[in-house]
Design a protein around this nucleic acid. Structure first.
Length: 648
RNA sequence: GCUUCCGUGGCUCAGUUGGUAGAGCAGCGCAUUCGUAAUGCGCAGGUCGUCGGUUCGAGUCCGACCGGGAGCUCCA
């Protein structure tokens, strides 16, 4: 007998060879029905796995992340089986579970129409109803290749050939007429899936490589209960309503124009005001922290970028002015970053170790010629303005300067209220990508070791990603997901031990020797356009009071009150509160409705009652009627909120 | 850049098998002067993204380009 330690440290004895499914069954019919996979001594296992030795076992259900992954992975196989039935000649690539469901990539003879998708979804429901048994079996690599060649599946053959070297048997899962190469785990039968929805069909490159074939990807999601699917779909709909690309336009924050061009949003008065508020806040805070403001040109001769390495590594991403081919013509380029400009400021003087650290900050407008399919609202644009900065320091100062930058960033994130929504990524180079990166392996090993040590000491909880570094150094990227679940970098901090030498930036140390300093590239709040986009989505347009482009709107009950309304508006403005009056001859209900839709934080209603008592009726966008206050009381309340940068 | 879907007045959309455009909101005018999410009436507004093709005739069919959405790739 073997001893299995279950939930709550309960130990039960089983015959050796008992499967995970058997154990689940012995614990209860309900658990067996809900079981998606098992976890034996911390390792995720298939329900079919026979237990040969004593271990700690937990049964994973849809409520566990790993159980959910197995559930969705099985769903992707059902999708593939449905495609096989509906589209003869379909070739299968890969079909994993993802955080929000699953997808499967296919090579199909014709593009998928929405009707095709509906037909495939119906077929999936049929397969589920048939409750097809799912079986696991293994083959040697040679047998596996032969089987997949027989099925006419070249992508699977390619995958098997790659695995073959490991000398392990290749596992397959078969459900009726469909057999797929797969490591598992999987549910026991197709009937375990209850509610299905196919969400979209799009393109995706084989192996994520743009030089390889474009496949068709179908995204879907499934749940054990129809109501859970409904809720999920409702959530997706709700999320779309927060989309900054929609809401930001509705609220009059920005617009785009065909004649102006792709990726070139026009910030309208309200959006421009929000960004101005953020920018003033950032510049003031940086000044307090010892940053030196610079203002450098938006373009430079190509020679500067040749020196920085951008001409070699980043030319496709730059807007180049002038014709390189023409003899003797000067060629310029709009700047894609601020680095070399601030370096030239550093180089304008001789520096002693006593001068360091030097912290340069600039509200910097950058231009990047992104490929046409990359642009998205305010998140990915061709011209943007970033709180850019470079810290020049000695090796001894690197850690404390880095810590200072992280402290500033955390302060910014806390202030705008997104501290809980971000994650940290340690972005490293890819040693095999010689095209992309400059510098030696020793240099990379050293700076990455330095950065890791600093991150660990700062207690930052980060993930690691290879091949995401800047071409000159590793990065700490601060990531945030947009409303569609897509992650973007909003802030980045980089350690650079390579460009100082390239630019011959030196300082004189205690011994009178010239040394190359470390450079920290950083932004404190990111680029304003992208940060604004994230704020719109985070707050569904209802920004914290201090950031609102219109903080109070006075609503005179009838035309008779217009003069006094303007008087109150002027009082508020004098107190630094952004106030307007709705002068239209409309009913107050109508004015309130509009102000609510425009997310104006406070509405001040003015009629006979208020005029007599020298007050206004205050309505908050969030709490509704707040009763009457004198203008002075309202100003005091609003100012307190604004000055503390309160997050509602 | 790639795959796919889409493009009708400022916005949201309708427009049947090709027969030369319609609604609501917004705007403007008039009336109304109103108490916490839409007052009524009227007026004006579109060479149907652009260019080319098929056709007696194109918003409707075809192509190219421009722009937008989703995904992929890319993102110093």
């Amino acid at each position: 007998m073997i001893q299995i330690k279950l939930k709550g440290d309960v130990i039960r004895e089983y015959e050796p060879g008992t499967t995970v499914a058997d154990v689940a069954k012995s614990l209860g019919a309900g658990l067996f029905k809900a079981a998606c996979a098992g976890k034996a001594d911390g390792k995720v296992v298939d329900l079919r796995t026979p237990l040969t030795e004593s271990c700690a076992l937990s049964i994973l259900t849809f409520d566990d992340e790993e159980g959910r992954k197995a559930y969705w992975h099985t769903s992707s196989h059902i999708l593939a089986q449905a495609v096989l039935r509906k589209i003869p000649g379909a070739k299968f690539a890969i079909g994993p579970a993802i955080d929000s469901g699953f997808y499967y990539d296919f090579d199909l003879p014709a593009p998928l129409s929405p009707e095709d998708l509906a037909g495939i979804e119906d077929e999936m429901k049929r397969i589920i109803k048939e409750d097809v048994l799912i079986e696991r079996f293994t083959l040697t690599p040679d047998e596996a290749v032969r089987l997949m060649e027989e099925y006419g599946q070249p992508y699977k053959v390619e995958l098997i050939r790659e695995h073959a070297g490991k000398g392990e048997p290749i596992s397959f899962y078969r459900q009726g007429d469909f057999t797929d190469l797969c490591a598992g785990p999987h549910l026991l039968s197709t009937g375990c899936i209850k509610a299905v929805k196919l969400l979209s069909a799009t393109g995706a490159y084989w192996r994520g490589d743009a030089s390889k074939a474009m496949l068709q990807r179908i995204y879907g999601v499934t749940f054990p209960k129809a109501s859970a699917l409904e809720e999920h779909l409702t959530r997706l709909e709700e999320a779309k309503k927060r989309d900054h690309n929609l809401l930001g336009r509705q609220l009059g924050f920005f617009t785009t124009n065909e004649l102006v061009g792709q990726g070139l949003p026009l910030l309208m008065p309200k959006g421009a005001r929000v960004i101005q508020t953020l920018q003033r806040f950032v510049e003031d805070e940086e000044e307090k922290r010892g940053y030196l403001l610079t203002k450098t040109p938006l373009l430079a001769k190509s020679d500067l970028y040749k020196l920085s390495g951008h001409w070699g590594h980043y030319k496709d991403g730059m807007f180049v002015l002038g014709d390189e081919e023409k003899e003797g013509e000067e060629v310029f380029a709009l700047r894609p970053m601020t680095c070399p400009f601030q370096y030239m400021i550093y180089k304008a003087d001789m520096h002693s170790y006593r001068d360091l650290p030097l912290r340069y900050g600039e509200t910097s407008t950058l231009f990047r010629n992104e490929a046409s399919g990359e642009m998205h609202g305010l998140i990915r644009v061709r011209q943007f303005t970033i709180s850019e900065g470079h810290l020049i320091c000695t090796p001894e100062q690197l850690e404390s300067e880095f810590a200072g930058v992280v402290d500033l960033i955390k302060f910014m994130m806390r202030t705008i209220g997104i501290e809980e929504d971000i994650s940290y990524r340690f972005s490293k180079w890819d040693p095999n990508d010689t095209e992309k990166y400059i510098g030696t392996k020793e240099m990379w090993d050293e700076t990455q070791r330095d950065m890791r040590r600093i991150l660990d000491r700062l207690g930052i909880d980060y993930t690691e990603e290879e091949g995401e570094a800047a071409f000159y150094g590793p990065k700490l990227d601060i990531q945030m997901k947009n409303v569609h679940g897509k992650e973007d970098t909003i802030i980045t901090v980089q350690i650079d031990h390579s460009l100082a030498e390239r630019f011959d930036m030196t300082y004189v140390d205690q011994n009178g020797e010239k040394k190359y300093p470390y450079i920290i590239h950083r932004t404190s709040i990111g680029c304003y356009e992208r940060t604004l986009a994230m704020l719109i989505e985070k707050y569904a347009g209802a920004l914290p009071l201090w950031l609102c482009p219109e903080q109070a709107r006075i609503l005179p009950l009838s035309d008779r009150f217009q003069d006094s309304a303007q008087g109150i508006r002027d009082k508020l403005r004098a107190a630094g509160i952004k106030a307007e009056v709705d002068m239209r001859s409309e009913k107050v209900g109508y004015k309130i409705r509009e102000a609510q839709l425009e997310k104006v934080p406070y509405m001040l209603i003015l009629g006979d009652k208020e005029l007599e008592s020298g007050t206004v009726s205050v309505r908050s966008r969030k709490e509704g009627d707040m009763g009457t206050k004198t203008p002075e009381e309202f100003i005091a309340m609003a100012r307190a909120q604004i000055d503390s940068k309160a997050i509602d």
